[in-house]
Design a protein around this nucleic acid. Structure first.
Lengths: 221, 221
DNA sequence: CCGCATCCGTTTCGATACTG
DNA sequence: CAGTATCGAAACGGATGCGG
């Protein structure tokens, strides 16, 4: 192939683009950031990605040292792919892209796949780095038929988004587009409540505070 | 057409990839981060990029609100492309990718184009965010037949890389691969001096300190 | 089933030539 | 200077097959 020489430029961005700039590659890395995955797991998540292209992408990522193959212990047979240390070094760039892309998320388009993991990544990327209100939220997000639960905790060191079920001051139940609308899409808490797009239990002012725990770049300048 | 719907996923990374994930697009943005550019300027910098693809990429970036066309004032006729506010919002992600890609820069490959601007971007991306030695360096970098001069200033708030000729405690003269080798490639100052790949004037210990002003992710975990 | 290789019709890219 | 037009080459998506 020698496609590693796609851009003959002594430039760091061109080098990065040669490794992760092809179609699907960043989305494969995204899935592996969520944990080790099998070939078929990746195919299932990435509709439209053909087996041959996935094979090629994984081979390139492995050759670049970002991904490692690991044989699964018995009784589960097979192979999983996982990020190496070098692969995880990509996370800052990936989160920076997630943060920028969050501003482009809305509207939810027809026939678009929705996964709780992906929303969690977006919320993590947009979590405030600076001081945010010291409040604790539980998010119940209905994505398709599944439900994802996230804990969002503000504090002087910034906002943290984690998985977990521990109780919180307030619980917000909504679908992904509503959550995104609240923090990035100009959906006012008042309007969301009126249209019953969100349900709040616990502290009554929680919904007003919630968006201030995040920081989203505005789209379409 | 309708390539705006390349990935049918409600995911921030997929949205970002739809806008800037195609071949050449990030490199076009890189050039525009350096300032407004004409169509022909971009073509000149991006060898291998055909006029038709550049036309399409610029149209898409403009449609996405990242880039604006501006008619040039007389007497210079023509059009320039420049980043909008929304386009500049991509800079954090671009610099994160630059930082990661810097670890992949070496070795300099045969027939590879070298531009001072690109090295400046890499050094800026790798400048330490945390406290770095309060020293001032002037870098004279020979890129092809041209010469680029950069000022590198350390301090408690981090390292700053700027353009400028003001005098400094020490001046380092070298080619881009040597500069990169010093901060990212395991080229020891001692070896660089011995092989006359770098020339130092001013403070004699400058070369030892210089690499500590930068922070490069190690490649190939 | 899982991980891939192969084949094939379609899309996208790259090089060159041409136009207002 | 700023693009269009054209055309062969490469990449991609979908289907199928095959060994473990």
């Amino acid at each position: 192939m020698a496609a590693g020489f796609r851009y003959p430029q002594f430039c760091a961005l061109a080098r990065a683009a040669e490794v992760v700039g092809e179609r699907w590659t960043l989305l494969i890395v995204r899935e592996l950031v969520l944990g080790p995955r099998r070939f078929s797991d990746l195919r299932e998540r990435l509709d439209g990605l053909s087996a041959s292209v996935l094979t090629e992408r994984l081979a390139r990522l492995e050759a670049g040292g970002l991904v490692a193959r690991r044989a699964l212990d018995r009784p589960a047979s097979g192979v999983v792919y996982e990020l190496t240390e070098a692969g995880r070094a990509l996370e800052p760039a990936l989160f920076a892209l997630l943060r920028w892309g969050t501003g482009l998320l809305l509207p939810l388009r027809p026939r678009e796949r929705v996964e709780g993991d992906w929303l969690r990544l977006a919320l993590t990327a947009c979590a405030r780095r600076g001081p945010s209100p010291a409040r604790t939220f539980l998010l119940r997000i209905r994505a398709g038929r599944a439900e994802v639960i996230l804990r969002v905790v503000g504090g002087p060191g910034g906002t943290a988004v984690t998985e977990g079920f521990e109780s919180a001051e307030a619980t917000l139940t909504a679908d992904p587009a509503t959550i995104l609308g609240l923090i990035a899409g100009g959906l006012s808490p008042r309007a969301a409540l009126r249209d019953r797009r969100v349900e709040v239990t616990g502290e009554t002012d929680a919904l007003e505070v919630f968006p201030t725990l995040f920081d989203v770049t505005e789209p379409r300048g």
